[in-house]
Write a protein that binds this DNA or RNA. Structure first.
Lengths: 148, 148
DNA sequence: ATAGGTGCAAAGGATTTGCATGGAA
DNA sequence: TTCCATGCAAATCCTTTGCACCTAT
């Protein structure tokens, strides 16, 4: 079985929470893990459909929510308002190309510590943040408009 | 007339663009300017209604879009997906309390310059960014759940 | 007179929910 | 057998649009 580690993680999460292990959940996890970048619910649904024409939209959404709870995926919201999912991994932020839609990850210790200062200054308890840089990627800078 | 400067700015924007100066636009601008913080379309609509029960939802939305184009307002999108408007002013970012909904503005030169570095490193052309810190404000840190 | 503006209701798009059926445990 | 999961359709939420009427210019 591909993605054995993650499938096991899912299985044990399901057991621990008295939830059921279904073909749909296994299939959606597997297809989701095959994708490297950030995928929308719609896109994921399409991919799932290619292999499992009987799986519904609803199940994809519900399963992604489940995978987020299980710590295998995380939700991202960029400016277009469409929810995207990515494989859960260490903290990072994003550069988003407004022409081709490319999403690049970055992390920056300088910013993190500057944030900590701000949070302290306002006596805030920081739970999470969101930091996105929007612009044109190197490939799109010459173009009038961008495709993908 | 209150907010004379802004009303004039609106008037000249309207003239320049062959648009019409209406009571609704004047009223919405005036009420919007009375609000200090960040307001949702819904809240603004309610406030407008208190004084002008004949103004519709649609007009509030359309007018806010107009005010944004005119540079008098700007739209903000936080994690709850609801559009908020604020008076247009120099660049800043936000701290958002997840309990009481309080929104605090901040600006940080350190972060700005760190961003510039990242953007250069990826050969990106930066157009705008979004940086939001979510957590609990000082007043809400003791509470189980928050009102307001 | 003539564009643009308004307000209602209806549409829109992404996501969620109700409900009867299906399938793990 | 029991309860959770599924899939469809309908509902939801915020926001936008169509359209007939209205009103600045």
């Amino acid at each position: 079985m591909a993605h054995e580690l993650e499938q096991k993680a899912l299985a044990s999460y399901l057991e621990d929470h008295n939830l059921k292990h279904t073909k749909q959940r296994e299939a959606i996890l597997s297809i989701f893990l095959d994708i490297k970048g950030h995928i929308t619910g719609e896109e994921l649904y399409q991919r799932v459909r290619e292999q499992h024409s009987n799986i519904g939209y609803t199940t994809v959404y519900r399963t992604m929510k489940l995978l987020c709870d299980a710590g295998l995926a995380s939700e991202r919201h960029f400016d277009d308002g469409i929810t995207r999912y990515e494989i859960e991994h260490e903290h990072h932020d994003h550069l988003v190309c407004l022409r081709c839609g490319k999403i690049i990850e970055f992390e920056c210790q300088k910013i993190e510590s500057a944030q900590d200062e701000i949070v302290k200054r306002h006596d805030f308890q920081l739970l999470r943040h969101r930091h996105e840089l929007y612009g044109h990627c190197s490939e799109c800078q010459g173009k009038e408009r961008g495709g993908s």
